[in-house]
Design a protein around this nucleic acid. Structure first.
Lengths: 111, 111
DNA sequence: TCAGGTACTCACCTTTTTGTAAGTATGGGG
DNA sequence: CCCCATACTTACAAAAAGGTGAGTACCTGA
């Protein structure tokens, strides 16, 4: 989150979901709540540091809910809030676009 | 563009439209082609360097078309390709989401 | 000759983002 | 007493993104 005012809705949305990981984390939580470790395995390539950092931000934004189970070994579950769910829904067409044009995208020049 | 393989469509789409400006530039070109200067004024806050840099990338990705008119003073028009148009369409729900939750987003904690 | 308008281009710097590798805390089981 | 699994946490470094301000090229009209 960097700005306070936005020129349009897309501007605001990009500010919330921007970055390399947030959309993917949201996506991973689409079907059901996941534990930290499950999430790490779901979002391929993410480091523990990035994952927790993004999760903390998303929690602060009200997109995800963090539920701690006081057990040993520890168990923490992350789930989407209503807000997070609505954002995820808004991302569906973008995901479908990416799916549809995947081959084109993979063939695009790098840099 | 950083990757060659994607875990899902959203992953690919985020890679294409990622960053601070591309979605906004796409948005600005939604209605009609714009000249460089018009675009700079449309996308508030962008510097000339960033604008041209993003435009070049988007041209390489096949999202926008660059038309040069050999005149003095120079005139260059940027327009959406079909591909760019389809991406823009996929972004509409995200824009609407941002619009709808603008106030919530503006009230979110910074950092 | 010279300012003006347009579309860049460049060098340099700061900020932000991302990655790596190691370390911490907990209590149960062996 | 020590190891295990889980969920973090920290320090440090590298890489990517973004910003600033000046400069270039072109022809036209004053």
């Amino acid at each position: 989150m960097k700005k306070r005012t936005y020129s349009c809705g897309l501007d605001a949305a990009v500010d919330v979901v921007g970055g390399k990981w947030k959309a993917l984390i949201l996506w991973a939580l689409h079907h059901r709540p996941l534990r930290f470790g499950e999430l790490r395995r779901s979002v391929s390539g993410i480091s523990e540091k990035m994952l927790i950092q993004q999760l903390r931000e998303m929690e602060a934004y009200g997109l995800v809910h963090r539920e701690v189970y006081h057990q040993v070994p520890p168990k923490v579950e992350y789930s989407l809030t209503e807000f997070g769910h609505s954002l995820n829904t808004a991302l569906i067409p973008l995901g479908e676009w990416g799916e549809k044009h995947m081959e084109t995208i993979e063939a695009l020049p790098r840099d």
